[in-house]
Amino acid sequence: MSEWEMYKDKSEDSLVLVVEFFNRPHDTGRLSSVLLHLNHSIEMLLKSILLRHDYGIRKENGHTIDLGKCLKVLEGGTADKPQLDLISEEEKTTLGEIATHRNEAMHGNAVIGEQLLYAYTRSGLSIIDSLLNEVYDESLDDILPNRVLPISGSPLKHLDIIYQEEADKIQQLLDEGARGAARARARAIELSDRTQRGEEDPPTDSELDDILDQIDADDDFEDIFPGVSKLRFDIQGEGPTIKLQFTQSDGHPVHHVSEEDEVEEYAIGFREVNPFDRYSLGVYELADKIEEKYDGDKHVTRDTVWAIVRKIDVHGNEEYHKKLNTPYGGLSDRYSHKAISRVIEAIESGEVEPKVAWETHGYS
Score class of each variant (00 low, 15 high):
287 A>D: 06
270 F>A: 13
77 G>D: 02
193 D>T: 05
118 Y>E: 05
181 A>F: 11
110 A>K: 03
101 H>N: 02
267 A>W: 11
259 E>V: 13
144 L>T: 14
355 K>R: 12
30 R>G: 00
25 P>V: 08
74 L>H: 10
114 E>A: 13
147 R>K: 10
240 P>W: 04
97 E>C: 04
132 L>W: 03
258 S>C: 00
195 T>M: 12
157 K>S: 09
241 T>L: 06
36 L>E: 03
188 A>S: 14
196 Q>G: 02
228 V>S: 03
91 E>T: 14
2 S>G: 03
154 S>K: 14
344 I>Y: 08
11 S>T: 04
185 R>A: 09
231 L>F: 06
209 D>W: 01
127 I>S: 07
249 S>Y: 01
154 S>D: 13
3 E>D: 10
236 Q>G: 04
105 A>V: 08
342 R>Y: 12
35 L>D: 06
332 S>M: 09
265 E>L: 15
332 S>I: 01
158 H>T: 01
116 L>D: 13
356 V>P: 00
352 V>S: 09
44 M>G: 00
171 Q>K: 05
188 A>R: 07
263 V>Y: 00
135 V>M: 04
314 V>R: 04
134 E>L: 12
57 I>L: 01
96 G>I: 03
338 K>W: 00
26 H>Y: 15
191 L>Q: 03
5 E>W: 05
219 D>A: 11
360 T>D: 12
278 R>A: 04
174 L>S: 01
